[in-house]
Each structure stands twice: as structure tokens, then as C-alpha cells.
Design a protein around this nucleic acid. Structure first.
Lengths: 233, 233
DNA sequence: CGCGACCTTGAGCACTGTCAACGCGGGTGG
DNA sequence: CCACCCGCGTTGACAGTGCTCAAGGTCGCG
């Protein structure tokens, strides 16, 4: 069963009583309000955070003030894991967030002695890795609507991995955040959404909540390699 | 020291004698010629491969026959790790490759009982994760030369992480592979290289071996957010 | 020597990035 | 409770880069 992701992927949930107890002893419940910074690029990476509720964005600010969002993280995810002693990017709460803050040296000790704990970290990392590769696939698209469609599909997948099934897909992050994630200007994101709506492919039930109307054409957008023709030699 | 990458990042090299012995018992030396397929998307993920020499590409073929290369892997890297019971992409030898094939169930057993082994896998995964995020940063660039510059910089970084220092940067993969990695058509990759050469920024010493001439302007390309202006408010 | 894969080069057009102005909504203070 | 204000989001116009298509070149290999 190693290297498999379980149905609901919460790391701590995988642990038994004893291990959860150990973790709880070194973990501390912390709270961040919307927009709060959890850690900054360059800070010493002293803590790992296990998100209990809310959404976090991890991003890098590059020369020129432009931001690239590297990942969105949700309940059950760990942030601060793959750092090299110093945080390589900044983490900020997209919504209100509650999390468990875990001292890295303490976790280190635990992990050295406890294979099961280590194992659950492995699962988490493979999960993050797949997410990053998915992100890369999104960015590789050349058409704006295609990127947005893949982004929506990704959110939906995350949604149902979490069990929170339902036709409505929540978009907790701002359009501007979406723009920084899919690598397009805000205006293009806006236009793409409008285009999807105009084509009766999706509909907004709320400003931050959308539903896919025409599943068939939506899937078509996902699989189209680029601004496509489907002709033959 | 947990969550740190050591100077040379070879997983097996991190293990002690006993552990290396254990691994050797379940590993089998295998060889692939240039262009050979190591595994296919959809195959049951029975093995992990530890690359001893050569270069491998991991890619996904999407509808329309287009290919997206997800990662290039080099000596010391592990492939087949982050799969979900079934390989999620295809692996193919870019050069001649020798590798150690490790049965996944056997590795599973070892890992469950041996924290140190598990730990080295953690290191490997964080390494892969950072590589994926770097890939995403490349793809997020909108200018062709910028992507190529970042790609070259990445290869150089890998080069010196491996100790193989020297001004010459080898490009083991075909232009077409580069194109599939950086998400541009082959023609644009070609033009970008030409542009770098015309600007006296890089020079090819060999068809597959290049050198950075003008380091200053090269760095400039790396940091330019996009087709840039550097103006003020 | 000739074929095929890999690479280069050319021309035109469309998509999307840049710039910029406007609308909307929610929060705050009077 | 209302009015203001500011951030977020939408929309428009325009210009440019890189994508599509397509043909020519070069290298290596049989």
C-alpha cells in the first residue's frame, strides 16, 4: 500500500492513537485571519503547518514585484515541508485559517524513530508532487480558456478527493490569485470566465461558487491540446 | 538535518553499508538503450528505478498526440516513485541508461522497518518537488528566450549539484524534447537559441554542449519578469 | 550515396499581454 | 442608515510575440 494515496488524504488521520498523541504534544493550534502572512521567503524554516481549515497560498515574489503562486493548500495539507532550512517562498492565508504548528526539530526527532509517521509524510509529499506536475500541465497550455478549464477541473478534483462532493465548485481565492497561479494577467482570467459563461459551459451561482453546465463541452476544452484543430493528415 | 538536501543528492549514497546491502539484494541492474521505453502510462507500477547513469524523460501523451515532458531525470534520481499503483506517465531513455530496478513491494517492506531508508526517500521526493516547482516557474514565463534561459540555468544548476563542474553545459536531450519540456513549439526553441547566439550570450562548442559567454546579460534574462519594462510608478 | 530524423528558417495571423478607464460592492465612519 | 471610498473585478483598444503551417538544410547512419 506504500506510495498510494488513501481516499481522504489527511496525513494525521493516517496515524494511530499513539502517534497522534505524540504529534499533538509538539503541535500548537494557531489561527490566521484572511490575508495574514504565515511565513516569509527567507525566514528560517522552523515550523511546519498542518492546515486544519481554510485555504493557503504559497507564492514567490520575483523581480519586478510580480507574483507567481506556486500552490494552493487546503485542509489536511502540510506547508513548509520541502524547504531547505530557509523558506523558499511565502505563505499567506487566502481565507481564515486554523492550523497546527509543528516545530521542525521536534518533528525531526519523531520521524527518526517512528516509521509510520515518516510514511505519512511520504504520502503527503507524493501528493504535493503530483499537484505540482498538474500545475505544470496547466501552465503548459497556450490557450487562456484551456488553462482556466483545467484550473476549474483541478479544484473540482480536490473537492471530491475531500469528500465534499456536489456540483458547486467553490473558488475561495481572488481572481487576481487565480491569475498569478495560471500565469496570465488578471484581465485575461476575467475574459476567460466570461467566455465560459457566454458559451453556457459554466454558471456562477455566487461570486465565488460556480457550476459546470455543459459537461461535454467542458471536457472537450480539457482535452484540446491547444488552440486546436482536430483534422487529419 | 532533516528536510535538507545534501551536497550530492544520491539517495543510495546516503545509506550505510547495511542498508546498501539490503537494497542491493532486492535491486537488479538493468540497461536501456537510447530511446527505449522504461515503462508506459497505465502499466501497473511494480518497480522503482534508481538511475545509475544516463538521462531519462518522464512524459505524458495527451489527446492530439502532443507530448508534455514532466521531468528530466539524471544519475541518482528515482523514477516511478510518485505513482498511484499505476504509472501516471511514460518514462523513456534519452541517452543510454543503466539503472537499478527495485521491486516496489520489496522496497515497501524495507521502508516499513528502516527509518533511514525511508528518510532518504523523503529527501528524494523533496528534491523532485522542488524540481517540479522550478519547472512551473519556467512555464510561467511568457517570453521564449526567458524560458530557454531558465532551462539552461536549471541544467547548469543540476550539473554543479552533481559536482560535474565546468563551463560547458551538456544538453543531452533533443531540441524537440526541450520544446516539450518548456511548452513551446520546436521552431520557437530553435529561434530562441539562435537569438541567444546572435546576442553573443551563449555559444555552442558542440551540437549538444553550450557555454555561457555573457554571464551578466544571461542573468538579466533570468530575472526579467517577462517582456519587461523596469520603469517606476 | 541516399534516405530519414533532427533541426533551421520563412511568412502571416491570431491570441493574449499591456495600458487604461470604468463599475460594482463591501466596509467604514459619520 | 446613508454616503463615501477604496480594492477588486470588468471591459475596451491596440500592438506584439510566438504559434501554425510549410519548406529547406544538415547530420548521421545504413
Amino acid at each position: 500500500m506504500l506510495f498510494h494515496e488513501t481516499a481522504d488524504g489527511r496525513a494525521v488521520a493516517l496515524l494511530n492513537e499513539r502517534e497522534r498523541g505524540l504529534l499533538a504534544r509538539i503541535a500548537m493550534r494557531v489561527h490566521f485571519r484572511r490575508g495574514a502572512t504565515i511565513y516569509r521567503e527567507g525566514d528560517p524554516a522552523d515550523f511546519v503547518y498542518n492546515i486544519a481549515a481554510g485555504v493557503v497560498k504559497a507564492f514567490r515574489t520575483l523581480t519586478g514585484g510580480r507574483r507567481r503562486i506556486v500552490a494552493f493548500l487546503f485542509a489536511g495539507d502540510l506547508i513548509g515541508l520541502a524547504e531547505e532550512g530557509v523558506y523558499v517562498n511565502q505563505a499567506e492565508a487566502v481565507t481564515a485559517v486554523t492550523a497546527y504548528r509543528i516545530s521542525l526539530p521536534a518533528l525531526d526527532n519523531l520521524v527518526r524513530t517512528d516509521p509510520a509517521l515518516d510514511y505519512s509524510l511520504l504520502l503527503k509529499l507524493t501528493h504535493e508532487l503530483r499537484a505540482a506536475q498538474c500545475h505544470a500541465l496547466i501552465l503548459a497550455r497556450h490557450d487562456a480558456i484551456g488553462r482556466i478549464a483545467m484550473f476549474i477541473a483541478m479544484l473540482q478534483r480536490l473537492q471530491q478527493e475531500r469528500g465534499m462532493n456536489g456540483d458547486d465548485i467553490p473558488l475561495p481565492m481572488s481572481r487576481s490569485d487565480i491569475a498569478d497561479y495560471v500565469g496570465m494577467p488578471l484581465s485575461t482570467v476575467s475574459r476567460s470566465f466570461r467566455s465560459l459563461i457566454a458559451g453556457n459551459i459554466v454558471r456562477f451561482t455566487d461570486r465565488r461558487r460556480l457550476r459546470i453546465i455543459d459537461r461535454a463541452r467542458f471536457e472537450e476544452l480539457l482535452s484540446q491540446p491547444a488552440r486546436g484543430r482536430e483534422a487529419e493528415p
